[in-house]
């Protein structure tokens, strides 16, 4: 069936399922292994994941479209968007017609007004993504999916440290020894403002 994930459904899944919104790329790994045969909770994660990936793709796309970035920074933003696109493509391949699509997102006024405001938003989003992926490692039932969630979390952590650097004007910013792990509720709360 074709599933159109509405904002309400999305939030509901995030709140009730004990599954983090940004468990996103988890299904990515499923593409290479057993996926939809997993517990229903894991399938729910897959649907939420695709939604989160669409949000990430949208953010990077808008940032690139501002024209505020060039050189290696622009190349990095394009590569990061491709990272997210790769996640979504694999996820959509697993979900088929059930994959969410054609979603729209909204952003606070001024989000894309400057490189710094974009970086600040990126820090907030990627912090939520990393935390949620780490939480998903614990929440998922499939051991294979746990590993994939860990991989995606590490990739998002790299995005995060780069956004923190951009937000600091190019200066390197140290990281905590243990990145924070978020619950599904916390991750959903962090991303909710961006769902139209």
């Amino acid at each position: 069936m074709t599933m159109e994930t509405s904002r309400g459904e999305f939030l509901s899944l995030g709140m009730k399922g004990g599954l983090a919104l940004v468990a996103g790329g988890s299904l990515l790994g499923v593409a290479a292994g057993p996926a939809l045969g997993q517990a229903s909770g894991d399938v729910a994660i897959a649907k939420l994941a695709a939604t989160a990936e669409l949000l990430a793709i949208d953010v990077y796309g808008r940032a690139i479209g501002t024209g505020l970035f060039d050189g290696d920074v622009l190349a990095y933003m394009e590569a990061a968007r491709q990272n997210e696109q790769d996640h979504y493509d694999a996820l959509a391949g697993v979900l088929g017609n059930a994959a969410p699509k054609d979603l729209t997102f909204k952003y606070p006024a001024g989000t894309f007004a400057s490189a710094k405001s974009i970086a600040a938003t990126g820090v907030a989003l990627e912090t939520a993504f990393v935390g949620a992926y780490l939480g998903a490692v614990e929440a998922l039932e499939s051991n294979d999916l746990k590993a994939v969630a860990g991989q995606i979390g590490a990739n998002e952590a790299q995005h995060l440290t780069t956004f923190k650097r951009l937000d600091a004007g190019g200066t390197l910013v140290p990281n905590p020894s243990f990145p924070e792990s978020l619950t599904a509720k916390q991750a959903t709360a962090a991303v909710t403002p961006f769902l139209a």
Binding site: K146, A149, G150, F178
Partner: peptide, 10 residues
């Protein structure tokens, strides 16, 4: 497993 993911991310 979660802790491994945290360290891996760091």
């Amino acid at each position: 497993k979660k802790v491994a993911a945290q360290i891996g991310a760091n």
